Amino acid sequence: MFSPLSPTAIMAVAALLIVTACASQSTSEATGWFGTHDGVPPKANKVYICHGFGCVYKTPVEYSRQDLARLRVILVSGRASPSAERQAIAHAVAWQERRVAVTVGSEEDVGGFDIENAGVSGQMDCIDESTNTTSLLLVTQKHKMLRHHDVSAPVARGFFLDGRYPHATATVTEKKTGTVYAVDSWVNANGKRPDIMPIDHWLAEGDRWFLST
């Protein structure tokens, strides 16, 4: 007869399952992400905000004309250059997190590795964050709010053996250079601007927590 797992062992297994999900990302087109990660792609001006880790919960939020006008103002501020547009994208992502927080219950969503909140409505892992940011970016692209970038598929890094936990991020691709940029909203708390950097820099990052524990 098998002995019951201790709470510590259960937590370790849960952590492995959840963060391993972030390692199995596809490099298919951005819209293909939703079908393989239990998300729902945007429909017209409605986004389906993932939360609870791994898109356990999906809460629809429809953007009004006022919302779209606000997004346009934010993104127009970055029209001067690709760099300026990336800063505007960061502003837009933070705006979305604040905009949906009351509906979703994500006002207190914490940033970074937070396994104790797995399954908690309103808390988000990297799958939720990548999906939500990609949804926002697709809406802005549909409304031609982006001048210098195209929305591209989320990307993943880390596989334990290299000392990093698996993690995923949304991305955009600069039209002029073809450079892919991470738009990583998982690392910071709700409503804070995401980290944006070239994907090769992002892929090289990662805490060495696994080798030191």
Rank of each mutant, 00 (worst) to 15 (best):
V187P: 00
E174S: 03
A182M: 14
A168P: 00
H167I: 06
S185H: 01
G178M: 12
A168F: 01
T173Y: 03
W186M: 11
A182Y: 04
S185E: 06
A182T: 09
T171D: 12
T173Q: 15
D162L: 05
G163P: 08
A189N: 15
K176N: 13
K175G: 09
Y181L: 06
T177F: 01
R164K: 14
N188I: 00
K176T: 14
V187E: 05
G163H: 03
A189L: 02
T173F: 08
K176R: 15
E174M: 00
K176D: 15
V187F: 08
P166A: 14
R193K: 14
T179Q: 15
S185G: 15
R193V: 00
D184L: 05
D162S: 13
T171A: 10
G163K: 12
V183Q: 02
V172F: 11
Y181S: 00
A168W: 01
V172T: 15
V183I: 15
A170W: 09
R164T: 03
T177V: 06
V180P: 07
W186K: 03
G191P: 08
D162K: 04
K175I: 15
D184F: 06
V187M: 05
Y165W: 13
A168T: 15
A189M: 07
T179A: 13
T169V: 07
G163Y: 12
V180E: 11
Y165F: 14
T169S: 15
N188W: 10
G178S: 02
K176I: 08
V180N: 04
L161Y: 11
T171N: 12
R164P: 00
V183K: 09
S185V: 03
T179G: 08
V183W: 09
T173W: 07
T169H: 08
R193C: 02
A182F: 04
T177E: 05
S185M: 02
V172S: 10
A182N: 03
V180F: 03
P166S: 12
G163N: 07
R164I: 14
H167M: 03
V187N: 05
Y165Q: 01
V183D: 02
Y181E: 05
A170G: 14
N190P: 03
R193M: 08
G191Y: 07
G178L: 01
Y181K: 06
V183P: 05
G163F: 04
T179S: 11
D184S: 00
T171Q: 11
V180W: 01
N190Y: 03
D162F: 00
K175N: 15
L161E: 10
V172D: 12
D184Q: 09
T173E: 12
G191L: 10
G178R: 07
A182G: 02
E174H: 02
N190M: 13
K192W: 03
A170P: 13
K176F: 02
G163V: 03
R164C: 01
T177C: 04
V172L: 10
V187A: 07
K175Y: 03
T177M: 08
H167E: 11
P194N: 07
E174C: 02
G178T: 11
P194W: 10
T177W: 09
E174V: 08
T169C: 09
T177P: 01
K192Q: 14
K192C: 06
D162P: 04
A170F: 07
A189F: 07
P166Q: 04
R193H: 09
D184H: 10
A182L: 04
K175E: 13
W186R: 00
D184T: 12
Y181V: 04
N188P: 00
R193F: 00
T177Y: 09
N190K: 07
R193G: 00
